[in-house]
Design a protein around this nucleic acid. Structure first.
Lengths: 345, 345
DNA sequence: TTGTATGCGTTATCAT
DNA sequence: ATGATAACGCATACAA
């Protein structure tokens, strides 16, 4: 009849008739170095097994050691709620890599504020410190908290670009530039000479990176382009499309799945076939149900990035990786079939 | 210029010229009770603010026993990988409730064995003990491990029925009986007199519970039924369907989404319309893409069950809930439109 | 009204 | 080869 309270090293020591320090040594594989008799070691192991001993994570971190826990903090309102959520895939990658490295994952559910947002410091105490380090992700990330966390010296890795921040933090970012370059290369190779960029009105970092890459690379790809059209999803008009076509645009580069779906509808309403009459490429994955399904697209390798973040974090903890480390992960290769030769060629 | 190491209560005390205990009291709102001078309190708060003090979670849990961590153990091979996985919804419920109760969730990624299965005791010792308690779920659950865990006195709650087990463990189960009763009531009310049960060949507990309820309730519902047809998905034959129809069956009760899809195909191949010619009800959610989409069905309230499990676990930890506690959660109400009057009425 | 002392579980150092 | 001891940050019973 085991006691209902968790056994400590002292309990093990009592049972095995040794000192608590001996238990600690055996546990941490330092028994050999310090010369603990094999028989004693065995006795200790047996006691640990019989009492079901597990090291106390809190005590370990208090002491300053590692405890095998990796925190996952997301600024999104809820964790795995939306299965189709953009962030789900990152989490899958994180989890897979954690499995591979024998680390446990702590989801910081407690960091949610009454208003649904999540804050590292919200509840007064920084829960993250329970873990050895953390992977932080989320659209709505709070730069002040990131800064503070970094200043505190807490080891964490960010998923998403953090170039230009004051305090260096390792981050894992997608290689948007290469992805956009691939798209433009494909368009140019197909014979297009003029392309138009359609994106969302709200400009966050990932959107800016895509657009910046587009603008920078268009000249090199021997392409012309109109002023980027940045509008809220749901407000793309037929007029804009007509105008672009009149200007000689034969290929559209679309930022989001939503805009892609809309554009698909507008094109088909005009009797234009893809890619026979117009070519299109999306810089994200078209939504399953949308008319843009099957369109040529590149996409962020979210799973790979999640896994990468875990590896970088462990490297950081080991001291193998400097806090200035930046990890750029290639996007998924261009897939789909909405890029063809422009009409009349 | 904040120091590179985090300030402790002692640092605050030094700055504010008070004792560390006073800092602790102010921090926990016990300053009033213990009669700390308002001026002193203010001094302390100022010091905390200026040094950017944040309590150390590890030290708190070490001190208090509980650490605010709830373990989540699933016997399935990977954790949140499959977004459309049956277990995903349970996890969502667990996470939501954990948020509500300010608990963090630990995913035991380290408990995965090389063969992909998960074991509580995989690494020799019971990793779960790291947390205050755990919620355990999964199709392939290992009864021996459950038994051992219960004997160890580790606080955990199971999702799924555990009636009849030797050692009592609180569990959260779905009320299949009520759900099946609702289905049969609806069929009887529509005027059906004979129904047939179609289920899967592999009989696990949830399947058995559905069937048992069906067999027990059919007589009371003034219905007749043939011998249940339990076959592997993919092997339902047109012959069986024809035979049932010949026997006078006007309504089918189907155990799984897979069987429902198959049955839908077979019916439509015979030119039978649902529910004009045949009524059907599924005891699970029809798959999104299948021909059985929109069929009348009941379903386990997975999200609610996940949340319930967390509440029960916390009750168990508080001592408010006995280890013999059983929590039965109603299924989701009957929805869909594949139940109608039998033909010729 | 404030300060001192103790222990939570761990690990590392230093004497035996 | 082993055991005693200190320290990590915090909360609290108790002494002043």
């Amino acid at each position: 009849m085991p006691s209902s309270t968790r056994p400590s090293q002292r309990d093990i020591a009592r049972v095995a008739q040794v000192s608590q320090a001996a238990v600690s040594l055996v546990l941490n594989g330092k028994a050999g170095e310090k010369g603990i008799a094999p028989a004693t070691q065995e006795k200790i192991r047996a006691a640990m097994a019989s009492l079901g001993y597990v090291p106390n994570a809190a005590a370990r971190s208090l002491r300053g050691g590692r405890n095998g826990l990796i925190g996952v903090h997301t600024f999104e309102s809820v964790f795995p709620v939306a299965a189709d959520d953009y962030y789900h895939e990152f989490l899958v990658g994180i989890e897979e890599q954690a499995v591979a490295q024998g680390q446990d994952l702590v989801l910081f559910a407690s960091t949610q504020l009454p208003d649904g947002t999540r804050s590292v410091y919200g509840r007064g105490s920084n829960r993250l410190r329970l873990t050895d380090g953390a992977v932080v992700l989320g659209r709505e990330r709070n730069e002040d908290e990131m800064e503070r966390l970094a200043l505190e010296g807490f080891p964490f890795v960010l998923i998403g670009n953090r170039a230009g921040a004051v305090t260096p933090v390792p981050y894992v970012a997608a290689d948007y530039t290469a992805a956009v370059a691939e798209v433009l290369r494909a368009l140019a190779a197909a014979g297009h000479r003029r392309t138009a960029y359609l994106g969302m009105a709200a400009r966050r970092r990932p959107q800016e990176e895509r657009l910046r890459a587009f603008l920078a690379l268009v000249p090199g790809a021997a392409l012309a382009s109109s002023t980027p059209h940045l509008v809220e999803a749901g407000t793309v008009t037929g007029e804009w499309v007509d105008q672009q076509l009149a200007l000689g645009t034969t290929a559209f580069v679309v930022e989001t799945p939503e805009h892609a779906g809309e554009l698909a509808d507008l094109l088909s309403a005009r009797g234009l076939r893809v890619p026979a009459d117009v070519s299109v490429a999306c810089l994200d994955v078209p939504a399953p149900g949308s008319a843009a399904l099957g369109w040529s697209h590149v996409a962020v390798a979210r799973r790979a990035m999640g896994a990468r973040a875990v590896r970088v974090l462990l490297g950081l903890l080991e001291g193998d990786v400097p806090p200035t480390h930046v990890d750029v992960v290639p996007c998924l290769p261009l897939r789909g079939s909405s890029i063809g030769a422009p009409p009349g060629r």
